[in-house]
Design a protein around this nucleic acid. Sequence first.
DNA 1: TGTCTAATATGGAATGATTCCGAATAAGAT
DNA 2: ATCTTATTCGGAATCATTCCATATTAGACA
Lengths: 155, 155
Amino acid sequence: MMAKESIIQKLKKRGLRITPQRLSIINVLVKKGHLHPGARFIYREAKKEGTRLSLSSVYENIKELCRCGIIKSLEFDGRENRCEGNLEEHVNLICEHCGKIIDYEVPVSLDQREVAKRTGFMITNNRLEYYGYCAECTKGKGWLLSGRKLHSTPL
Amino acid sequence: MMAKESIIQKLKKRGLRITPQRLSIINVLVKKGHLHPGARFIYREAKKEGTRLSLSSVYENIKELCRCGIIKSLEFDGRENRCEGNLEEHVNLICEHCGKIIDYEVPVSLDQREVAKRTGFMITNNRLEYYGYCAECTKGKGWLLSGRKLHSTPL
DNA sequence: TGTCTAATATGGAATGATTCCGAATAAGAT
DNA sequence: ATCTTATTCGGAATCATTCCATATTAGACA
């Protein structure tokens, strides 16, 4: 996770304001980022600082921090999304029992036995996905320049 | 995607019944599985066969087919979940523009330039996750035997 | 220090995929 | 043909997230 100061610099550079709400959220991320906190956890923790804060603001700020490239949102279905502050390439080990998410810093070998030996983590399932733009969609690149994401054919 | 007959065998072996609804859903998966269809798509397509069918049943059947290890559910937040019939280890290339999901059959090299060269897919983001059970959770393995998934500490 | 304006916060309503429910139906064993 | 029990149905419930209109305020500038 980026240092608090760098985050604030980055936000200011973008013309974003440093509000008490935003600061308390950043504090949680800096201190508890390794837990890959979800929105409600951030909400609870941030409020402990005494700042007035709404859940909507937490969501809004998470989105903003994603846009700035400070965190990534790990999206799940059924469970809450979680924040990822480690933007280095790595594998997330996600425990089906306790929900814990562990960063595994070895992009070199994705061999599952290797992972198990190193971490004691028993792998039962995986998810390997690259997001981006397929060959057809990069043909007429007009919309790409605009930076918008469109789902033209939602299936 | 498994062949229709093998799927039916597998279901029967489990004591599950072959209903018209289930059959029409399987038909869609076999014929259109490469599109990684979502629940509504399956619902629409399956009804074209003339079978009476409800969306609830589609969801119920997707879950059952997952339990049987015939498909996997690719879970997203915001968008619909999608069905994956390819249980071989591979990477999903997910287009942010059209939502298309392409199976990329190369577990050997995950090098992003290699992927781009082969497929024309422009990678902007990725998601590498291994699901399973962390070291602590496999300590007292009682609950593991029961097959249940518990989230003891939902964070 | 005071003013101004655009960014931000708020909370309640809306969304939308999925799950849940109790009742009705029907697969397939006997 | 009967019976048991899995399955289906559709409508209500769930729940994380987004949306919205309004109120507030950070921070630039005078």
